[in-house]
Amino acid sequence: MIKVSTLAECMAEGRSPEILFWVGCAGSFDERAKKITKAFVKILHNAGVDFAVLGAEESCSGDPAKRAGNEFLFQMQAMTNIEIMNAYEVKKIVTTCPHCFNTLKNEYPELGGKYEVIHHTQLLRDLLDDGRMTIAEGTFKGKRITYHDPCYLGRANNIYEAPRELIKKLDAELVEMKSCKSRGLCCGAGGAQMFKEPENGKKDINIERTEQALETQPDIIAAGCPFCNTMLSDGVKNKEKEDSLAVLDLAEMIATAKDL
């Protein structure tokens, strides 16, 4: 049993943890995404990272509201979150959600929330590079893994390499889809699309992207975003491939490799 502290508890104990793990709404509530959260926390714990969460004091970053056009709701959310984080004197944040990552990193500073924000794949890469974490080869050795670039990590923030380095560290074979990196195709969830029905068309975007992934004949589709994960998992189910093909977050893969 791992004990996850909240910042409120830390403050009461007079501790100020090194880094805040921003869990995000998907990571907190979505059954699939909660597995990513738990895998990541196990890794943090195992690597001895001094972290805490906000717990019930965390609230939606406001990303879907802003991208849906509700700037007012976004800024209400942002300023409430900023007020809380500033009260705890938060300096550094890690998050498993590229949408939260982008919003916290790029859109909060103007509103008074200035933090060093990193994506969990960056933290995991750093832990490996610093030797604070090691992975014994085995579990994923030789597996064909294709990596789907989340728009808000890739194009939006030019982070293409950290997740790929992790896959290579797992001794797996990284196979690229025909549109990858800066030309990566969206999973279909961004811009608040996750929460609405798609407009009429000839296909759903997640199906198109899943087909691109299947063309690489992967054993695993790696994702770095809980929403991409959901969209691609749905796509794989739609293609009736869920028995032979897993959609996994990089944190889950590392946790598995480390047998956590």
Partner: peptide, 8 residues
Amino acid sequence: RANWAQEL
């Protein structure tokens, strides 16, 4: 929000 932490 933090119920997941009970499931570790």
